[in-house]
Amino acid sequence: MQHVLSGSDTHAAKPAASALWWPAARLLLGLTLLLGLVYPLAVTGLAQWLFPAQAQGSLLQQQGRVVGSALIGQAFSKPGEFWGRPSATASTPYNGAGSGGSNLGPANPALAKAVAERIAVLKAAGPLPAGPVPADLVTASASGLDPHISLAAALYQVPRVAAARQLDAGKLEQLVRQQAQVAWFGSDATARVNVLQLNLALAGS
């Protein structure tokens, strides 16, 4: 930079703070206009033009009626539906306007109590396979809106859904496996299923 000011003495002396307020205010307001209005409105315009469906929340329709978003879970609770994860959103489960997790620590007795209750509800709702309960099916997600369950958690519910709908369990398992998405670098152990889309497929089959 060519312009070193008038040397260290000037700087060491009291710089006039008052001389800084006006440039600061002008820069702040100018950048607020550019970064706070022009930028987000430009992104909005481009997004609505290029990717309108995603920009509006990836809504899914059934018979011309919005029934959900492909990215947001719902509080399924009938025996003939696949259930999503427990949700700790504000006021009601799967509240799309009140996201959040339980924030229960690992040793909190309230966590063990909630999990025990969820296991009891699962057991009461219909037949279950033997073996341990998939952990994601009885623990609250971070957002409370998690649209997925693990493939293991979906397969765990197959006997109940098959019984409630009087379907062949083998065919139902096939449907579940068709819906499974493999995680990056993952295997069946880390595969997942979108619960809303699985239930939509179930309703359509």
Partner: peptide
Amino acid sequence: GVDGSSGNWEGKEVR
């Protein structure tokens, strides 16, 4: 009776 082998799931997202 929860499957511990898949990790600590409370407060995490499946994806």
